[in-house]
Nucleic acid binder design. Sequence first.
DNA 1: TCCTACATGAGTTACGTACCTCATGTCTAT
DNA 2: ATAGACATGAGGTACGTAACTCATGTAGGA
Lengths: 345, 345
Amino acid sequence: MLRPTVKDIAKNAGVSLATVDRVLNGRPGVRKSTIDAVFKTIDEIGYVRDVGAANLARRREYKLVFVLADGDSQSSAAVENKINEIISGPSTERTVLEVIKAPEGDLHKVANILNSLRKKNYDGVAIMAPETPLVRDAILHLKEAGVSVVTLVSDIPDSGRDHYVGIDNVAAGRIAGFLMSRFLGQQGGKVLVTSGSMRLRDSVERRLGFDSYILDKNQPVNALATVEGHDSIEILTNAVSNALLLHPDIRGFYSVGAGIPALLALLRGTERMESAIVIAHDLTPQTREGLENETIDAVIAQNVGHMVRSAIRVLKAVSDGSQIDPAQELIRIDIVLKENLFNWS
Amino acid sequence: MLRPTVKDIAKNAGVSLATVDRVLNGRPGVRKSTIDAVFKTIDEIGYVRDVGAANLARRREYKLVFVLADGDSQSSAAVENKINEIISGPSTERTVLEVIKAPEGDLHKVANILNSLRKKNYDGVAIMAPETPLVRDAILHLKEAGVSVVTLVSDIPDSGRDHYVGIDNVAAGRIAGFLMSRFLGQQGGKVLVTSGSMRLRDSVERRLGFDSYILDKNQPVNALATVEGHDSIEILTNAVSNALLLHPDIRGFYSVGAGIPALLALLRGTERMESAIVIAHDLTPQTREGLENETIDAVIAQNVGHMVRSAIRVLKAVSDGSQIDPAQELIRIDIVLKENLFNWS
DNA sequence: TCCTACATGAGTTACGTACCTCATGTCTAT
DNA sequence: ATAGACATGAGGTACGTAACTCATGTAGGA
């Protein structure tokens, strides 16, 4: 038979349309027993709400905002581009998207922005920001105000966020460990791990995963202490230079976060570049170029388009309390090599 | 301002609602100059049709059918499972899905099935079948009958299909070549390429890509002639056995299509298993297990869930002549290792 | 017994679009 | 000049749901 409608519920349950409507939309004035009866019929006849018609009727518009505030301008730029692509693209189904960028490194500003959002009755907020107590509190407040919240790329646990949209960074680090081991071969060697800043949770988790793989598998890889840039290219460059002098026998480089251009600049031209294995995270113009000219051997990435679309879907679903498809929302860890680079846009 | 509606078009263009409607839905009885004027205003005010409302009004139901007819029961089983998951899942948005499986290897049957679909007024057909003249003609006839058609997993060019939903198999083969070279290391070695059947276009293309990588990059890899199973496990087993006897120094195995269980059964227990590199295609229960117990080193896969959803989206879009988002419909080549196996469901 | 609180029914309007009918206006060919 | 063809306007109904009003029914407490 045709797809059942509210009328079918009313008929089968022996109640009026108005009562069905009250039950479906959680309005008061219905006896418990009647509510149960209605739900029972819904189950029996297999009614599913026509979301299109419902949205039409309630003139629903989802107001969503992306707050981008991580230190690494490259990866948040990729996210921003994707959002703008979606905004300007066709078929923005009852969704109004907005992007707010926080000045790099200013974490008080981030919290202020989040707090200011409470008053503007947004339906959902997607946050890409370092994990700090201020930010965590701001998220808690947003949740109290009834706003849906997801964290993007880097999770902020215990903040009450509804969902984390991004890859499992520990697992990503393990994959880096696997690739590094394989690419270095049986002889293994020293590996330098670099990071733009270890303040972002994802960097820390990736390093953790990398080490745990090396340890678990008992690989002949000697991973040196993380060289950190503290959000400054200069500091990173100096630190890497020192490490290179100190360890002339480094055979591999693993960049867990930003700072790949600085690293490549130091390596370029040296005879080390030829033989060294370089593994990085996130597809940016720089890492893309690195893959193309074979200065980078592998990039561990996440599909930014999928992430942004997933964030939107999840925020909408949380907003109207409907289910999400976990399989569809799982962000996969992608391994990008020169050979499948064309696959990513 | 609010999202513009047909009324806004009418007002701004200085015509009546009826005329706008005639233009939008391509009905006759409108002067060319008026049509142009209407489209001009649509452009100016940025009107986009509310698909939800439109579908509601036209009581549209998309009747789609998946015809699965490849020889490899494993990979079509994965597709079938995904479809059933979607069917039984929530929110089947005005879409009626159906699956028709053709008996393995019976290609006349496949063509018959496709031809019989013409009468049943389906909106779209997704086909996963070998490329034969009969099948190609059947697709041409379907297109003539106004049915949307996409090919799945393995393309059928020159059939007039609207879209191919699947990975670039030549590129997938190249990636296999890259991984094989890397994993074998500088010493290289002999590689046996196996295939359940070379009748499927994807197998041929993968082999092609594999060879072209080895050749282009001048790798020390010696890829032997493809050992084919002609859709029979027994034949494949015998052929592989012979090859193993003939070449005791094989260091790598690349399975471009079905038949991985037979291959692993032969290798298991031999000392060769320890050192040999095995690369396969498609995540099936068998390849998954192989990754887990480390008998398989890498699997080149395609996200089946994404493929099925993409096929549905594309068929719908073609059916009502709307645009698709190429970036969203691009099926990526996934590299699955033991370390990121958990990512795939 | 009557009043009140609450449960329910009946009905209406709106959302944006599709599709239909009927009336009227305008131009062209004869 | 007039018929006929064609272009357009005006208006209605329907789709499935949300949100509302108003009337009626019923049970329990005073």
